[in-house]
Amino acid sequence: MLTIKNLHAEVDGKQILKGINLEIKKGEMHAIMGPNGSGKSSLSSVLAGRENYTVTQGEVIFEGKNLLDMSPEDRAREGLFLAFQYPVEIPGVSNLHFLKTALNEIRAYHSLPAMESKEFLKLTKEKQQLVDFNANLMNRSLNEGFSGGEKKRNEVFQLAMLDPKLAILDETDSGLDIDALRIVAAGVNKLRSADKAFMVITHYQRLLEYIVPDFVHVLYNGQIVKTGTKELALELEEKGYDWLKEEVHQKESV
């Protein structure tokens, strides 16, 4: 579904990604871990097409298409979804109105007619129950006055509504207490399916107790330095990142 080859990117002239290689197939759950500043969130920004990141080398193929050639909105319409680490607030725009606009833009891209209000409301209700999202938040202005946890849960609700092929969760666990974390994880688990893939970016192993990954990649200094299964996450939890950093530096000095 997603193939990243030798991806290099910079922001403000500073190299952030230094040759990422990654293959994600349908139905897979990939976890990206790594210490602060290793480039985890930059990777999600580059994939989603944030303007201030410049790709200097490499390619990304998403469902057979060159992802890097597309505008951010077309990437979204092709089925790439980013759950933001810091979701923005948009005053005066209701959550539902925003979602309906988004959904119908995506449908229009695929030559589908706009969804009828009745059908939309039905879908809303269904998904809201699926991911256990507070119905009161749906008519409020988008993320305005939401708590940190509510914003993250809204991201998962949007993920359920827009039904993408590939979902990238950028530190969705940060700032969540244990109950909220469980609810968010349960929502994500319900959305897992054979034709969907997930890339979960996290700093801590904690989230991976609830969302069990097929693969764990460790990002350090703009490169994936280690790939393993969920056991790797446990090892990191136990030993921290320092042993990996040392390993990397030893290789470099050889």
Partner: peptide
């Protein structure tokens, strides 16, 4: 960017905001 990432093009995003 947030709205772009949800499939809404920039012109519509501005109108919405």
């Amino acid at each position: 960017f947030y709205l772009n990432q949800r499939g809404i093009e920039t012109e519509k995003a501005v109108a919405l905001i």
